[in-house]
């Protein structure tokens, strides 16, 4: 049976791992390659690296980092952050990334998803959605959570999948950094509305939160950052706990 995935996420700025708390107050959590190796040895099923470096010049650093990571780890990883074209995607996939994640560029130009899916296959196109609950519904935000789009998250997820997104990485801005649990409701709604895997992100604080988002939220994978970086939750014991709770897990 296909196993549920546990995915540590590393936000990268200028070649270092950082983690925003509610997208602010960035803290340094170490060297990405060191962390990547440690995670793959501890049983992470996959890794995500998000480049939050602003300038094009610095992005070259990221592509070199992608190659360093690819050389050293033997599990899959996704890279994202500022991918806006076929060329950007191609560069990162050729550097050794397995999948690319796109966010704001796809919001601005949904056709980009089609172009990427046609060229690389939809299975390596991850659509990242930053979502916020307000006025009784979940809406899409772009530009690192700064731009309110007014588009309902459920509608965007469906449209993106119709365009060829192979996976959805759903981050709840309300939950991110709180450690109060994942946004189980919207994760479940999206997971039931689309026929591609959904990675739940934002809010993990305890092992129970992972269990809840897999069972109640119907997530296919769960992503977290700071709790792993600061070793508040150990991946192997988390996976053992989930397996004991009858969740299909690779141990």
């Amino acid at each position: 049976m296909l196993a549920k995935r546990i995915i540590p996420c590393l936000d990268i700025k200028n070649g270092r791992t950082v983690k925003g708390i509610n997208f602010e107050n960035i803290r340094d959590a170490g060297d990405p390659v060191e962390l990547a190796i440690a995670y793959s040895e501890k049983g992470a099923d996959e890794l995500v690296f998000l480049d939050i470096t602003a300038t094009i010049e610095k992005r070259k650093t990221f592509s070199k980092l992608v190659t360093r990571i690819a050389k050293q780890i033997n599990i899959p990883f996704t890279v994202g952050g500022g991918i806006g074209s076929i060329e950007d995607a191609s560069k990162l996939l050729n550097a050794g990334a397995d999948k690319i994640s796109i966010n704001s560029a796809a919001v601005n130009d949904p056709e980009l998803i089609k172009k990427l899916a046609n060229k690389f296959g939809n299975q390596c196109i991850v659509l990242a959605i930053d979502t916020k609950f307000e006025n009784n519904d979940w809406f899409v935000y772009a530009n690192g959570g700064k731009l309110k789009t007014g588009v309902k998250t459920i509608d965007w997820a469906k449209q993106a999948v119709a365009h060829g997104a192979g996976e959805i990485l759903l981050t709840s801005m309300n939950n991110d950094g709180t450690k109060n649990g994942f946004a189980v409701d919207i994760t479940k709604r999206i997971s039931e509305a689309v026929n591609v895997p959904v990675i739940a992100s934002g809010g993990a604080g305890t092992r129970e939160h992972f269990k809840d988002v897999f069972i109640d939220g119907k997530a296919d994978a769960a992503l977290a950052a700071s709790i792993f970086h600061f070793e508040e939750i150990e991946i192997y014991s988390l996976k053992k706990y989930l397996k004991q709770n009858k969740i299909e897990i690779r141990l």
Binding site: L2, K4, R5, D45, N122, N195, P197, D220, R250
Partner: peptide
């Protein structure tokens, strides 16, 4: 084929 399972299959299987 379209079922309750998702396509693509992504992840670790036996």
């Amino acid at each position: 084929p379209a079922t309750k399972l998702k396509v693509p299959q992504i992840g670790w299987n036996t």
